[in-house]
Structure formats: C-alpha cells, structure tokens
Amino acid sequence: MSDRALRTTMIVLTVIGVGLASYLTYIHYAGIHPLCTTGGSCEEVQTSAYSKLAGVPVALIGLIGYVVILASLLAPANENTRLATMALALGGFGFSAYLTSRELFSIHAICEWCVSSAILMTVLACLAVWRFLRGEAPPVASSGEPDPAAPLTAAGS
C-alpha cells in the first residue's frame, strides 16, 4: 500500500470517527436518547458516572481526539507528523480500551456507538503504527507493493 493510499484510508476512518463522536457529543448536550438497537444500554452508558472524565463528557474528549488526529494527517507528511499521528491514535486506542473496560466491568452495558468508535480507533492505531515504523514512503514497485529491498538495490543497479 502506498503512503498516499494509507494516509487517505486513515483520513476516511478519522472523518467517520469525527461523525460518530459529534453525534455522541450532540446527544449528550441535547439530553436526548441515542439511537440504539440494544435496548437502553446505550443510554445507560451515556448517562453513567463514567460518561464524564473530570467533568468533561468523554464523547467530547473523543471528538477533540479525532479532530486532532485528522489535523495531524492533513499536515505535510514527515517524521514528526507521522509520530504525532501514531501517538494520538495510540492514546485514543488506550482511552477506548479504558472506556470499553468500564462498559464491560463497571456499567455492565454495551453502547454500540462506543464500540464502533473503539474498533475505528484500534484500526487507526494499527495503521498509524505501521505508517510510522515504515518511515519515508518507499519507492513503489510496478506491482504497487513497496519493495523492502528497494533503497539498497536502487543504489547498486
């Protein structure tokens, strides 16, 4: 996968995340019930003691997180922005893991919106780590797949 395709995929996932978190933030402040196919469990999670962290709704924290990740992806790609994206996505993954553990072990209810966001953040974190570890975009081989030996053989050919 080329760096451009990887970045585009991550941007699309992040925009979906912004949409999800915006909806959850909106229903939190509007005081309305979330659309939920699992009965009242979404509402139970949304109104639980764990729906806020230090007085800030976790949905809003998530929205801010996604927006900052999006900003790091839209910034010119270099070592620093790739590191920032990875750090933010891993932070988001850790926070999602915390929230999911609260749903499972403290609230005993699952909110499908939160789970969707957690899955999204997990995929984003994996892609961000992959993108960071492979560094600069390697030359793309004719098949479209990066050639791991390209930097070395290119000099010798």
């Binding site: 990875m86 750090a87 891993l90 932070g91 850790g94 915390y98 960071f132 570890l133």
Partner: peptide, 15 residues
C-alpha cells in the same frame, strides 16, 4: 522503535 515504546509506555501510564 524507541519512540513507539515511549508512546506505548506513556499511554499505559495515562490509562
């Protein structure tokens, strides 16, 4: 890899 380790460590501590 060191930076990745640092980030993972920081995330674990924060969580």
């Amino acid at each position: 890899l060191i930076q990745l380790g640092g980030v993972i460590g920081a995330v674990v501590v924060i969580v």
